[in-house]
Structure formats: structure tokens, C-alpha cells
Design a protein around this nucleic acid. Sequence first.
RNA 1: GGGCGUAUAGCUCAGCUGGGAGAGCACAUGCCUUACAAGCAUGGGGUCAUCGGUUCGAGCCCGGUUACGCCCACCA
Length: 905
Amino acid sequence: MKELAKTYDPKEFERRIYEGWEKDGDFHAEIDPAKKPFTIVMPPPNITGQLHMGHALDQTLQDVLTRWRRLQGYAALWLPGTDHASIATEMRVADELREKEGLSKEDLGRDEFLKRVWQWKEIYGGRITEQQRRLGDSCDWERERFTMDEGCNKAVVEFFVRLYEKGLIYKGSRLINWCPTCGTSLSDAEVEHEDLNGKYWYIRYPAANGGEGITVATSRPETMFADVAIAVSPEDERYLDWIGKTVLLPVIGREIPVIADSYPDPEKGTGAVKITPAHDPNDFEVGERHGLAQPVCIDFEAKMTAEAGKYEGMDRFACRAAWVDELTTAGYLVKTEDVVIPTGKCYRCGTIVEPMISEQWFVKMETLAKPAILAAKRGELRHVPARFEKIYLHWLEEIRDWCISRQLWWGHRIPAWTCGVCGEIIVAREAPEACPKCGAGKSVLVQDEDVLDTWFSSGLWPFSTLGWPEDTPDLRYFFPTNVLVTGYDIIFFWVVRMVFSSLEVRDEPPFETVFVHGLVRDELGRKMSKTLGNGVDPIEVIDLYGADALRFFLLNGSAAGGDMRFIMKNVESTRNFANKLWNASRFVLMNLGTGEAAGQRDTEGLSLCPASLRDEDKWILRTVEQVAAEVTDNLEKYELSVATQKIYDLIRDEYCDWYIELVKTRLYGEDEESKKVCCAVLVRVLSDLLRLLHPFMPFITEEIWSYLDKPNKLIRDSWPTPEGFAADSDFTAASVRIETTKEIVRAVRNIRAEANAPQAKKLPILILFDKGGGSGESGGERNGENAALGAGAAAHIQALAGVSDIGIVRSEAELPGDTVSAILKGMVLHVPLADLVDFAAEREKLAKERERLTGETQRLGGKLNNEGFTAKAPPAVVDTERAKLAAAEDALAKVIAREAAIREK
RNA sequence: GGGCGUAUAGCUCAGCUGGGAGAGCACAUGCCUUACAAGCAUGGGGUCAUCGGUUCGAGCCCGGUUACGCCCACCA
């Protein structure tokens, strides 16, 4: 006979359970016309490294949703994969190459370098999927994808060509963000802004005719070498006379015009702005408007060009210092001002980005963004929590053309060829055989060296992974997907791109819901990062406490898109919860084991004949059903942490602390029939609890389930469905009786603890029922009293509260003098404690209680006398308040009576 | 310069569409009760940041203030 081990040891079974699922294909989603599909496409982790705690949260949320829907009978597909992460991976591999072999990627050459990256991908990609297995991810590994696999590559090329053919992709020379360290262009999203301490240098540009000239402020004096004009506002009276005249670049002596443009703001700086089209986005636009030249004084390595004269070859910042010195000496520096400068930095390496003019490929955003904005506004795309829609819309409304070419090797090569003879650009799905314009042969057609922004391919992820551009069965069945789970930090990087890409080729959003979660921070609330070294490895936590405990902890703390702190010690409590369930199950199994064949352990199917059920059985069945309904509702609303909490309470409080305790007298008793019934209920309820908990704690639930001799595995079983217990008046009445019993037990325990009565000593109790309380039956008070408590109540109270005898008294007069009392609904409970009774303390307690109840009755009375309340509040609320008042008045009367009774003691 | 979030028990945080505040940890007391000391029982502890408004009624809705945090942004 199988027994659960004495201690919960997740290491013992988590791997085994996972291997079993995988081996049996339990994660595989079959297309089934009889079932509804449920699809989540996993945000592909970068192959740059390993999963961190944020991934663990992200993955757990997705796994909960997937497992839950799978239990509900959906064809649930969670499609996994990894991202090639063009720039990030290339940097990592190049770093490794430099450190280990002292080689640059150029030393290796493109082909050889790419081989190395593919090797890296094998190692790190495998490491990531291994971590996902440890977490318990129930994703369909048979459908695993990679953003650079054949199918995804095909999708990227197809998408590129289509956009190009529609005129939505163009090649042009424009001002882009350039990272001198990574040696590539960047999209706007890849630039992070940071406020740095800097200066404004006020520099005088003398008039060409030898006059005083114009003073301008600049934070970047080193760009002066590429100045082509001074711009002023046409409405700025100070400079009206200057328009059309010229000034000289100080020291350099080059003559530049003063032009009028709408860009300068008279309120800012000196009102006059130096114009450097090649190194500033605003100036670039001004330059375009006025047809100005675009001299370049900083090159792609952030060094000064020949334009800077003697500074040629100098680093841009070194040049700045030297140049300011020279200007100062020459008397052109008017003043300086300390100021914070918002500075753009490369999101990968932190280098200050240099705006550069460069020929790049761009996606025209305006036409693509519009439908994506509409989809959200029409509600075809829902954000949870809703406030994140603002971030999404804001980004789309502000969006500018997207620079998609990168001067890198690792990524999707741009499907464009240039004809060496006539210069024609050919964009095609496959390498062209000849130039369509001049007919030149293949040998002179050169493919663009650049690769695409990594987000270009991830934007296609929800459908490229399902087979697009082919019209596959998977695509037809599983697309559009149901929900996208992601952190708020990549909404604009990624979510918007998936939406407009999908709208472009599929004419519908790629998912119904974007479920947004927050970041996992360290114990001090700081972002976990490599540089701080404060990251916690999920695997480390799993090794210590188990994957289930980690998952439950993450879920519990991940409410409503907010950030959460990861506190290692607190994972202990969820591990302890798992241990609790483990032991409760062990207890149930031990009791089932007695004298029964192993094959009969699954007593769930035993008909639960209502007549044979006791109050506590009905109560727990009803409670579980209610909570199951609530949990289902919470999951539908993506309130995962609320659901987690409810299941926790149900298992811990109701099942373990109450039901199992209530049932022990029967299990240890002589009544075999009753024993059988409660065993059936124990197993039945345990089964439902395991079903409810499985999405959250998949391992332990599957492991325990395996001891229940069920016909199938839990992962493929079903979600609990209501059977009408909650609505059954018989079950409801039984539940009320159990709640009363619990009240009495708690009251006795309280009295015992407060009075310091020995734990082991059995105490008698006396119950003074309210006059007429619970009666109404012809048999008189006695029957009414029994009805209030139920047949099994006495045994329950005796067992759980350490009570010897339960006496019923009719009046205060029948009581012994030395009791401690508790005022309960419909009764006063007395515990005779003889010399242990502290009447002074008792009076104090009662006085306090009287005060509280007096306040409460006044408050409620006032409320109910207020016509505004009775007229306007919903009837149900008024009824509740009336009942509360009645209860409070009743309790108050009893308190006063009790006070009177012990006044002389 | 815009936008957003958070402020609730000593700590970390819940609190669903407004009807007198909860959990975990910590703390105190008593228990080796035959599933569990990774446990059981009991208890103490909160003018729900602040000011004002709406309402019969506000932790929750509205406005102001303060503190901390985040995001976006091409201002010399």
C-alpha cells in the first residue's frame, strides 16, 4: 500500500512529475473542433542569459491560466519559444569572444561569428527551457519556436516585402540614434533617457561685420563645427534686425546666416539657437525647411571629423573640454550655467547616443498605428488592469517612423539587394537572379549587409509561431490568441508592434487581452539587476523551497499590475502551506487505508447519499462549492492573487483546521457506516481542492492525486463544477449549525486561554439559550436547542474545545456562581471555573463589551431611523443592518444581565 | 515639460461594482492533542498619509496638499 512520505519534499517528486507530463504529451494541444481553443503565446525570453525572477512571475501567471483552462476542457495551447535578441546577443557573444580569445567579431568574419552565436543559442536556449521545466511550465514543447527559425524567418521576409510593396517601408537618409559602442543605429524605443548634470555654455557668435554678434546657449559646444546657421523666432524683437544677416563661428571664422524659424522659443536660453542639422533632431528639421547643408563633425565612432580641424580624431567629449578652453581663452565664452540635461543612452550598453545622419530602413508608422489605436478604443483589445491602455495609446499616438535596420550580423538579414550596375534596389522574397531594371546578373546584386531590429520579428510572434504566412490548421484554430501576459516595461517595445503587425496582415488584433504585471524587486524595493548583483535566481529558490512554493508566493504578491518585492524568507510560508496540504492528504490516505483495498481509494464516486451526510459534511461540501465558484470568477477577471488567497484559506482554515478536526471523532469511532461516509467526503473534497489548487501548485497536487487511484492524471482531469449544494436549503441549514458550533468552540478555547486554565483539563460548560431561541417546534425548548446545534454538535464541542459535559440551563438562577461567560448569538455560554474565575477581570471585560455594543446599537439605530438611509439604501442592505441591530441589542441585553448577575461577586 | 502609481497592523502586502478593516511574517501566552513544531490554540496591535467635498453612509468616489517611486519627452 502506498503511503505519502512523512515530510513534504518537493525535490523527491517535482522532476519526476514533470518528466511524466512531458513524456505523456500532457502539454500538447490537439486541434479539436469539439473543444474551444485557448491560446497563450509565450513572450519569448532572450537567449542572452537565464531566466530571472521576473520571468518566473510571467511564466507562472501564464501557466496558471493555461492549466486552469485545460482543466475546464479547452484545447489549451501555451506556445513556448525564445528570442534571438539581435543586439543583446551579439554583444554578449562578442564580449565572450574578446575575453576568452582576444578576438573581435571582425577577426572571425561574419559567417564564423554567426556560427559562434548559433552555438551560444544552443547552450543558453537549452538552459532557459530547462529552467522553465523546473518552474513547471505546461507549455507545448512540440510547438517550440525560435525567432530565427525557418518559419519565423519566412514570416519576417514576407512581412517586410509586403510593407515595402505597400510603400510602408522605405530607405532613406535621416537623423537616427546611433550607439558608437554597439556600432549600430537604434530605434527610439531603444534609447533610454537619463537626467545628467551638465552645463549650458553661452557663446558669442560675432557679427560678420565685426559687431558684438549674437550669444547662444548650448549644452554641446563640440557640435559647433557643424553649425550652419543661427535661428531666431520671427516674433522675437531682439533679433528682428538680424534676420538675413550673418555671423561668424567663433575662432573658426566660418560665416553662417541668421535665419527665422518657428522652432526657437524666445523664452528659452537667449532666444537664438545654433543649428547643427547633422547632430540634433530639431536642427535637422530646421535644416530641411531651409535647405541647409548637413556637415558632420562627429563620426560613427564618436570621434571628431576633419570638420573639426585640429580636433580631428579626438573623442567627442575630450574635444568638448578642449574646445571650451579655447573659446574661453579667445573671449567668446560669455557665461556658463549648471543645468540637468536629459540625455539619451543606449539601452544595451549605456553609451550616450549620438544623433547621426545615416541611410537606414524605416517603417512608416502613421498608417500602421491608426488601426492599432482604434482597436483599443473600440474594445477589441483590452488591457488588464485598464490603466495600461494609456501607456499603449500614448506610445502609438506619439510614434514616429521606426528605424528597423541595424548594423549588426546576428538577426534577420534585410531582404534587399542593390544592383551594382544601375543602383536599383530590389526587395524580394528570394534572392533575385537578375536586376529587373538593367538585367545585370546575380553576381553584381549585393544583399544589404544590415539585419533587422529584433522587435521586427517579435512583432510577428503571435502568428508567425502558428505558421503564418502559410494558412495552417494551427493558425486557423488557435489564432487570434486569448491573452498576452507581459510586464509593463515592454508594452511599447513589443505589444504595440504585435498589434499593428497583426492588424496589417490578419486584420484583427493578435490577442483579446493584454494581462500586465509588474516587476519583481529585491527586498529593499530595488530593481533586480546584474550590476547591483541583487538578482535572485528562481532555481535557487526552487532548490530550497520547491517550485510550487515559489509559484504560490509570486502569485500571492502579484496583484493588479503592481511591483512586488521578493523576500526569500517569505517563501517559507507558502512552502509551509504546501507541507500542510501534504500532511492533510497523508492523514486522509491513512484513514482510507484501513481495511480497504487500494483500488477503492477513489471513493469520490461513492454516492453521497444526502441522508447519510452529517452537518459538517454538508457544510464543507457547500463551502468548497462556493469558494470554487468565486475562484472561477476571480480567474476570469484575472484576479489571480485573490484566487490564490481564497484557495489558501479554504484549504488551511476550512478543510484542515475545521473539517478534518470535526471528523476525527467519527474516524476514530465505532460507527463503520459513518466512517465510510466521512471518508468519502474527505476524499471527495480533497479531490476538489487538488483540482482548484492545481493551476497554482501543479507538482504537489499531481503527486498527491497519484495516490488517490484516479483513472487519469490531474493535469488532464477537470475543473470543479457546481452541483447545487450552495442553493440547497438543507445544506444551508447544516452550515449555519456548524458555524454556531465553531462559535462555541472558539468561545470555550478563548475562555480557557484567558483564564489560564490548563490545556489538558476537560471543562464542563453550561449553555443558557435565549428564551424561545430556535424553538417553534411542538416539542418545546429542548428540541429547539438541539435544532440550533444539531445532533453531532455535542461531540464536536467536546472534542475540539476539550469539554467534558455540556449542560443546558433554563435561567440564570440555575447557574453556579463561579462561571466565566461568553455572549453568543442566541445563547450565553458559561464555563464554571471555580477559583479560576477572576470576577474583576470579568466585570472589566463586560463593561468594555457593553460600551462597544452601546455604541453599535446607537450607530445602527440612528442609521435605521434615518429616512435617508431606509429610503435610499438597497433593501438587502437595510435588512442586514436591521439584523445587525437586533443582534447587537440582543447581545447588549445579555451583557447587562450578566453584569447584574455578577455585580456582587 | 507631460502622464501614472503608491501611502492600510512593527515588516511585506490584500481589500471585488461605496454598507464599521484582513492575511502572512513578527510579537505575547499556553500546548511534544495519535496528519503536520515546516505544527495547534488564544491574544495584543490600525484617527486606512493629510485637508476639503459628494453621499443616509467613504479605506474605496471627486478635488487640493505632502512624501516616495515609475514611465514618457527632440527644447538651445
